[in-house]
Write a protein that binds this DNA or RNA. Sequence first.
DNA 1: TTAATTGCAAACATTTTGCAGGTTC
DNA 2: GAACCTGCAAAATGTTTGCAATTAA
Lengths: 146, 146
Amino acid sequence: MKTIDEHLDDPAAVSRLLRRHGITPTRQRVVIARAILSRPQHLTADQVLQLTLEAGDRVSKATIYNTLGLFSRKGLIRELTIDSQRAFYDSSTHPHHHFYDPETQQLTDVDEDALQLRLPETLPDGTEIDHVDVVIHLRPSRSSTG
Amino acid sequence: MKTIDEHLDDPAAVSRLLRRHGITPTRQRVVIARAILSRPQHLTADQVLQLTLEAGDRVSKATIYNTLGLFSRKGLIRELTIDSQRAFYDSSTHPHHHFYDPETQQLTDVDEDALQLRLPETLPDGTEIDHVDVVIHLRPSRSSTG
DNA sequence: TTAATTGCAAACATTTTGCAGGTTC
DNA sequence: GAACCTGCAAAATGTTTGCAATTAA
């Protein structure tokens, strides 16, 4: 659905991308989409706000939050729950898992082939699987400096 | 380390349990420990507060939060990050994974044998695995009523 | 009796909401 | 021009902190 090779420098292309996801393009939404989708990354709402400011485009905090929620619902990005305190937004929407280093608060993708998961066949009644999150929480290794 | 068969009705036994985990027993801590450890369950801080109130023991909200944090650090309970908005505390500390139903906000344990996980051999430099959380997010099944 | 713990209220951080004004199609 | 979107400020969580009073050893 999402075309990665789209020229994100071109606002018209970003508008088309949004439209293809059922999102009405507005100046703010294009700014936010360009900030997030420019490369594979994991960002908090506040980091997205900073990126838009650095790009010279003012977007209010409320619009950042509302837009990130909209993009997630529409499948343009993925909301990750790793830290109780803040949400992360992932510009990669294909199924994949994460390392989390609480020291640096950095998220890293786990290589697709490196992790194998066999899911339960039996689920609670009346439910099906929406998605699965695997988070490998890291700590400094005993032998490492620190 | 944690003895499950301990008589949690007996405050003296709970005090011993706390001490064994390096926690100085106080009235409030015993009240909170009894509320959580009485059975396998997943509770939010607010639910723990309700339980202590129902038991007729007043504990302040600040003490609930501080004590849940202390118990987690000492390995008496486990803090789970499932929902960005609130933390869950699990009375079972052995490694196991969870189903999460966002409709009901209910957590359920995944049967140990039902899920198989092969972890990556290569980790980011200078780190080792602290723990792994697998959360299977559910949704109502298409065929179900609702 | 000394150090640790508690309760309260205030502070904090993140996210949501109400509404007036502005934008899109 | 009708419906939708934005910005601001205020509200709504959930959680932490400062400090005086209380409790544990």
